[in-house]
Amino acid sequence: MNARQFASDETLAGFASGRLDEGMALVVAAHVEMNRDSARALREIEAIGGGVLARGEAVPMLTSAEDALARIEETADIAAAPSQPPRDGGLPRVLAPYELGKWRPIGRGVAMRRVHVPGAEARVFMLRAAPGTWLPEHRHTGNEWTTILSGAYEHEYGRFGRGDFDEANEDHEHHPHVDAVEGCTCIVALTGEVRFKGWLGRMLQPLVRL
């Protein structure tokens, strides 16, 4: 049951409603962009939102369609929609609005890159690990959500490849092993505390707490 490589309905619903923390939401968005099943599940959940809107009680408006048209004409010049951001070296498009830090090595085949999400509770970063690396064993006091951008890793709860979503909560203690051939690049959002074990963990500790 634990080995699910896609976002749960609960997670997708939190995402679809806009209620999720922006950092966590960004990692879900990367997964939805890369995974067709979750994209479809999201559209179904949005359709439920549309259905609830259609059935819901109406509250009379104080303003009319004419008022809205008048305001539209007033602001017609600033109506241009933003253009689709270009893909940046295989990064998910949903990352385009965010500022990314530089890749920096943090030891033994692992590099990290911060994703700046102003105002988010979660810390968001990308990790790139060389083929065959063992990431430090750790457990959580909060949530750790991961979307695999390329390559794969495996741990106690299953194997996670490109586009997969790994939803770990405080009950999880895991020790990911990176694919021996492809390596792995992923984007991670963390809330709460992460407790690492071992030397690499001690190096990561101050970084993920920033």
């Binding site: 806009g18 960004l26 962009e33 067709r36 999201l42 498009r93 385009a96 609005p97």
Partner: peptide, 19 residues
């Protein structure tokens, strides 16, 4: 989240343009 210069609504737009 206006005060936080939120980008999340842009993320939803990108997902919609995507795919």
């Amino acid at each position: 989240r206006r005060e936080k210069r939120v980008r999340l609504s842009r993320v939803f737009e990108i997902l919609e343009e995507e795919s």
